[in-house]
């Protein structure tokens, strides 16, 4: 057993993927961080103090974790969902009644989305109260605020997609708020967002594109910058 395991980890195929050995020595452990795309946002060594959970409460990391959950469940949901007024609601029902674990997927996506809005807000509070926005991290704070806005927008655009009463009127109320922007700008913003004067087919498609492509990609780019800066500024 052990021999087989060793043989596998020493095979060329394995080593072509994982360039470092098993993290048994400090060297290979450091290499695990250097050579791993996902871990390279971390330094090879971290201060013991920062390992304490209450140091950051893990809020930023968990927000990122929620994002991963959302992308995964969202991608699966996209397989069954068609953004059209005729079909959207029926697809929800199909998810509930026919698709294997469809309801579970939808639940995960929904609850994770709500949790993420709260989590990102809490993360922002933590950063404020620990004063972690002070120079040189001020710009990263700005990115963080923008990411918070994106999180809310992601959740909001996704809110319309089930095309039920909750969704329809939630979005109508929200876009009506936007309409109060002065100088006729509000009307234009809401028209641009909805692709019309009321929430309809166009709005559904627009929100779908925003929700599934534009906002996630933008958020991912900003997240990349955000994490990179954290790392550069000596964070965890």
């Amino acid at each position: 057993m052990r021999e087989t395991f060793r043989a596998i980890t020493r095979s060329q195929a394995w080593r072509s993927v994982f360039r470092h050995g098993l993290p048994l020595s400090n060297r290979t452990r450091a290499e695990a961080v250097f050579y791993n795309f996902f871990l390279h946002v971390h330094p090879a060594k971290v201060r013991r103090r920062s390992l304490k959970f209450t140091y950051t409460w893990g809020l930023g990391g968990l927000s990122a974790g929620l994002f991963i959950v959302l992308v995964a469940s969202g991608a699966l949901l996209m397989l069954y969902y068609r953004p059209s007024v005729q079909q959207a609601y029926g697809d929800m029902k199909d998810l509930q009644f026919v698709v294997s674990s469809g309801q579970f997927l939808r639940n995960m996506h929904r609850w994770a989305a709500h949790a993420m809005v709260a989590m990102v807000f809490l993360h922002m509070l933590r950063v404020f109260y620990t004063g972690s926005y002070r120079p040189p991290k001020e710009f990263n704070w700005v990115i963080g605020v923008v990411l918070f806005v994106f999180t809310v927008l992601l959740s909001y655009t996704g809110y319309l997609l089930p095309w039920d009463q909750l969704a329809y009127w939630g979005i109508s109320v929200g876009t009506n708020m936007a309409r109060s922007v002065p100088f006729g700008l509000g009307e234009r913003i809401s028209f641009l967002l909805l692709g019309g004067n009321i929430v309809g087919e166009n709005a559904l498609v627009r929100f779908y594109v925003l929700h599934c492509f534009v906002l996630p990609v933008a958020a991912m780019v900003l997240m990349g910058i955000h994490f990179w800066r954290v790392r550069k500024d000596g964070g965890v």
Partner: peptide
């Protein structure tokens, strides 16, 4: 009733929504 449903209560539609 709710044709899409595959559960008794949901299918007869005696559910709130």
């Amino acid at each position: 009733g709710q044709g899409a449903a595959t559960e008794y209560r949901e299918s007869v539609g005696n559910v709130k929504y």
